[in-house]
Design a protein around this nucleic acid. Structure first.
Lengths: 323, 323
DNA sequence: CAGGATTTTGCAAACGATAGCAACAACAAT
DNA sequence: ATTGTTGTTGCTATCGTTTGCAAAATCCTG
């Protein structure tokens, strides 16, 4: 208690809050003293009193993938940007991985009043939970596929047009026998597949293959290897993520196929390693930096009680060597 | 306040804490009631009273690299494992990226008493700060290079012997003109380089090249490209991390060099994408899962006041196709 | 059934900060 | 000198828990 330095606790509190109520000279004196003795306000007490935790929860629902996932480059890039944005605003980031057993998880986090706002990365298979919470709880922003009628604010790439871009590019490359690798249980990936399908001419559509796979490198590798054996005439692959695309390339190499001569591979996300893979990956880019900025901006606006609407970011085709 | 349900606040508190002081039937009744009305204890109040936040700070000092870094797969893999371990113990993870301006950052975090313990990933160039804090503050565990006389507990791979393994392997492959790519300002990387050098016979030692580079894909790529131009006879590269190694492979491909026929490349870490790169990466593996487990275990033991000593984990050579 | 031993519960004081209100000082105006 | 105005500061209640201690309720035993 820095009140041992002359004044009352109230004065100290106000001085450190830079309140105009305190004369500038005592204010400065107290601030310097606090600095000198290394005094910091106790955040728990402050939170208790002001009902503001200055903390944002970052939630990663892992409904569809038990393991891995967090180490997917997409997550880490997103997380890095979000961490920056949030801490720039002087808030803390509380990290939570969720493996939803019961549906109460979100409500509990909110009810515990430990956080002032919630960021969710990927709706996974938890759309119902988000929908319910979203209608009554404002300070929440979700990264993911937008769907009409959703009660919560979301930010995400327009996955459908992303899928279209991918299909278009493969067709432009003269590819005829196409495959999509991904987990269509997840809304984002389902939308990518939807957009992809809409661009295919009938005869190519008939012949295309959907390969369900989890978004881990291992799963994708074996799924791709199996695909290449069962459908040796496949000459174009749209992967639901860059990690999957890299696994496809590796499986192709293992099966004696050259990329892009024998088979074109296009990924999604355009994470940093996409440019560093061999061959460099052609990918559908989502601007995660922009996305993270938007998420935070919307979140803080909602925290102030403003209303704001969801945003869909236009994805972009980045052509490198793999397709 | 669930005390509207018959009893006093004290009784509720004790019932929810499963205290033996409360008769089992009222205890059960209150617990079920709390469940039903969705009551959760206010963590701020509890923290204020008990002086325990049930929160662990995870700190990423970015002294040596302004940007990127967090999105390095190494960090994310580590973070994923640590998040698991910490939440398994019922604790929260508070994430902090630090770009040290002044040396007080660590003290401030600790003094704010927001956290019960601190995990630091990588000492970066902050060894002095850690050293000072470590001597008086127990609940802190650092991932990084061990050095004799350090005041804090650390967990980390034995980077020196890791460097030796890499050198040994390149020599076994018959490579004569070697290079190390990495930032030797960081203790971990410096140790890798040290170990590497000790294994080189005099004539190879004389001819080897140290290429300073930041640990980002972009920097490493241009550093590698430049190296291959300036020293076209280089036939073996030890990269300080897998991301750097992938950039080297890409630069080699861009320069018309084949890996591993013309040039051997060996990485460090063995992150998941190492196996997925093309060609699959030979790497020095550090067992990050084991490391994360150890860090948490030691941290919680220190939080209980036990003393325990630092751990150095033996790294392991994983041979794939790149070297 | 009294009295002691033993559960079971409630009272009240913290924990450290914030904010409404009142008090006090300083100063100007009448 | 009295009053009013403005600028500073202190008093005190409060946020929601936990916990030592005391009170009340229950049980046991002679």
């Amino acid at each position: 208690m820095a009140k041992l330095a002359g004044v009352s606790a109230a004065t100290v509190s106000r001085a450190l809050a830079d309140s105009e109520l305190i004369s500038s000279k005592t204010r400065k004196r107290i601030q310097e003293l606090a600095q000198a003795v290394g005094y910091t306000v106790n955040p728990a007490a402050r939170t208790l009193r002001t009902r503001q935790s200055h903390t944002i929860a970052l939630i990663l629902p892992l409904g569809h993938e038990k393991s891995q996932h967090l180490s997917d480059p997409f997550f880490m890039v997103m997380l890095a940007y979000l961490a920056d944005e949030v801490s720039q605003r002087g808030y803390n980031l509380l990290l939570r991985r969720i493996e939803p057993q019961q549906d109460a998880w979100l409500k509990q986090i909110i009810a515990s009043s430990r956080v002032d706002g919630v960021l969710v990365i990927g709706q996974s298979d938890q759309a119902a939970v988000l929908q319910e919470v979203g209608s009554s709880y404002e300070p929440m922003v979700v990264w993911g596929q937008w769907s009409s009628g959703q009660s919560y604010v979301s930010v995400g790439a327009d996955n459908i047009s992303g899928g279209r871009l991918a299909a278009e590019h493969l067709l432009n490359r003269g590819r005829k026998r196409l495959a999509f690798l991904g987990n269509t249980d997840v809304p984002e990936f389902a939308a990518r597949y939807e957009g992809f399908k809409t661009m295919l001419p009938p005869e190519i559509y008939e012949a295309h293959v959907l390969v369900p796979t989890h978004l881990t490198a291992q799963d994708a590798f074996s799924a791709a290897a199996q695909l290449l054996v069962e459908h040796p005439d496949i000459d174009g692959v749209f992967a639901a993520s860059d990690v999957v695309a890299m696994s496809v390339i590796q499986a192709a190499a293992a099966g004696g196929r050259r990329v892009p001569q024998d088979i074109s591979v296009i990924g999604f996300d355009d994470v940093p390693i996409a440019a560093q893979s061999n061959p460099p990956l052609t990918s559908i880019r989502q601007d995660l930096e922009e996305g993270a900025k938007l998420m935070c901006e919307l979140l803080f606006r909602r925290m102030k009680g403003e209303t704001c609407s969801s945003v869909r970011l236009p994805p972009e085709l980045v052509v490198r060597d793999s397709a």
